[in-house]
Design a protein around this nucleic acid. Sequence first.
RNA 1: GGGAGUAUAGCUCAGCUGGUUCAGAGCGCCUGCCUUACAAGCAGGAGGUCACUGGUUCGAACCCUGUUACUCCCACCA
Length: 903
Amino acid sequence: MELASKYDPRAIEEKWYQFWLDKKLFHSEPDNRVPYTIVIPPPNVTGVLHMGHMLNNTIQDVLVRRARMQGKNACWVPGTDHASIATEAKVVKMLAEKGIDKRSLSRDEFLKYAWEWKEQYGGIILKQLRKLGASCDWDRTAFTMDDVRYESVIRVFVDLYNKGLIYRGVRMVNWDPQALTAVSDEEVVYKESHGKLFYLRYYVADNETSSHQDSETARSLEVSKSQKYIVVATTRPETIMGDTAVCVHPEDERYQWLRGKKVIVPGVGRVVPIIMDEYVDREFGTGALKITPAHDINDYNLGMKYGLESIDIFNDNGTLNEHGGKYAGMDRFACRKAIMKDLEEAGLVEKTEDYTNKVGHSERTDAVIEPKLSAQWFLKMEGLAKKALEVVEDDTIRFHPAKFKNTYRHWLENIKDWCISRQLWWGHRIPAWYLDVNGRVETIVAHNEDEAKKIATEKYNYTGALRQDEDVLDTWFSSWLWPISLFDGIRNPDNPEINYYYPTADLITAPDIIFFWVARMIMAGEEYRKDVPFKNVYFTGIVRDKLGRKMSKQLGNSPDPIELMEKYGADGVRMGMLLTAPAGNDLPFDEAICEQGRNFSNKLWNALRLVSGWQIGDAQQSAENAVAVQWMEQRMAQVIEEIEKDFDQYRLSEALMASYKLAWDDFCSWYLEMVKPAYGTPIDRETYDATISIFSRLMLLLHPFMPFVTEEIWHALQTIGKDDEKAAFINANFSIMNQHMPTSVFYDQRMLDEFDTAREVIAGVRNIRNTRNLSPKEALEVSFIAVDDRYRFANFNGIVQKLANVSAINEVKEKPAGAISFMVGTMECFVPMPENVNKDEELKKLQDELKYAEGFLNSVLKKLSNEKFVGGAPAAVIEKERNKQRDAETKIAALKAQIAALS
RNA sequence: GGGAGUAUAGCUCAGCUGGUUCAGAGCGCCUGCCUUACAAGCAGGAGGUCACUGGUUCGAACCCUGUUACUCCCACCA
């Protein structure tokens, strides 16, 4: 059968993926083999594949495929994440486009829309992963909100609550007054904004009784201009209604006189204490800070520390509430203007400056974020963090690259309790119910409403309606259970699956979620399995564009992965990504590198074309071919050893590069050229079989990286020249996927060294041809003087003759007259060519070489004459230096002789 | 502001325990080739003061000091 000269991945990739699915080759069930488990970092259920996924999943697939071929029971579990914030935002937007306001819907109505959305768009990304060749066990596909996972989350919440690790508390959240929801820190974007810095006078209240006076009296005090005051700088004068203290640095000499005093909030008349705390930056403004505990996170912390009152002056929509006094009902920004006007008039403003600072805006609505106190659920971190840190510190879990240990440690040592509630509807609703008993609100945490009702009856003798908490859990509160919940290890902690597959082997993820996800999975693992969730964490880099910018939708600098795969083939794109992606390094993505991958597929394809065209003759194997096969075997064993080492250290790009060079350079450029029969002549059976075998094993080595082209070629090689057996072979489930990965074996280093010499001789001859414009068809002669057995290459004589088109190779004692020379180690090689020798050129070349050799010898001699070196360096090192000396001396003598002969 | 990291060829990176002729690889570039598998190819070649500075050592790309530049993470200044 004729093969096209260009490899076309499209049909081939589709064919084999379907084949693998049909034969259920990705499916895993517990058995006697060693398990190798990877759980996918679940992408957002409504997301689409981007370059980050491509990288991440390619790496997972490489590891899984390799493990499978190593005879392990490989199981890669796919799934998606409900991604509460992102998904809810998308649904809200979709509804808005239809003219539906989320606030007009009931929770159930909204969730119905959300589920519809999920059914429609959910899982697109998993389909896309198939194009990439991902060998996931699709039968196990999970979703963080499917029944098993939902129930697992609820159980864990109840369990942790009962253990006293979950509590409800008040915390400052980022409030979006437009969307009327709290948003996470990640959804706040800080923007430079030009505002003003207002300097306000806070008069000292001398009369101690003034703190109990009504505001009328206070206001009359305030107009008494004879009194002293302190000036406070603020960007947000509208919040002074919530001021409950003024803070200065305890060592600030300017304000020592205020120690223990009280001041009057301008325009408000409230008398508040002066407090002293080192938090204050003396350099900023006037070194005095007004404290508004309800509306600033730092003020809130100081308020807690000094037991200050917290006065919330805003409504949820950003207008002032009843605490705003005359400004009540006014928008916060309108209020800012109004209040400044009033203060100016009252003479309470010292000055106003232009000021640029960063103001948090909501990523979604662009509204200015208002810090707001609200009740939230928290998970205590202390005990969990301690264990999670230990297992990484003692290398029970290894990070690749290890530098991320530092980041991890730093975070865990400064960890705060985890706020696990979110004011959203899409997610796992918090299983807490409230009831009023004798005017008090009681909380019941239960697995479901029925259980809650039962508890209400038993504990409080209450049979009325229960009110469930409106919030849902942070998305990470389900993903942290992922390695356990995927195998139902929360609900059924002793089931055969969890016992077999857990702990998983490797986790492949991006470093930006080391805290959100990695650390928390480790905590959950320790808490619910008393064991780590994985043994290695491979941190991928971030995919950037050529200019080093992060890929993003806004910039439009992200190529569409599907289009890329159509252009270069999935194998080409996989290889392109892996070649530039050492662990933990950012990856400046350039389409050109996928081209390299495509070219490589094509190279392999053409090697198949070559081999499949060979006719087999009756001749005995020639000595040259026998040597070629032997050498290729040695070389392959050597590279396999390298590859194994690379994989052990998770250096995937190095492993791929080594395989690439083995296939392209050693196999195609050298080996195939060595054994390739002349046009029209057959090849001997022995060499042919060896070539098929080597080629096949090469495909095995490459298969984890380039699954499609290797399966195609491997199949072709097994059935080459046996068209009638092809169908049966395919039906028999034979796949490269379940072949055994070649392992390293002993190899003969001397043979490899000898070939290197031969290769240099070949290169030397080719170079002479090249520089002198000699046709490759014109056979040349080579002679050499070998003073050192290390540089003999007798076994490769025939090969040198074939590849360099040399008619004869002679060992000589003296340099032949009229020859061009070159050196390989200490061996002098000559190509007799009297008519072509340019004496001056030759002389210059030789003299340059001599100069270098002499310089080199000098440095070696210097070392060897240094007593401290001879005394201090290891014997092996000294021996090496002696060898260098001998080699250099030999070479210098040879060069001098040549120079003498020429001149 | 706190923490971590990086700096080697035009680009992206290796260089492991300081010691081979150590200054490497891939891509790119240059030259010559449509040589019966492959121009998505073949052969050959040029490219670097290992950021800078001082030190340790018989010996430094590698260890230490400082400087500079960049990157990332965390916190965020009224």
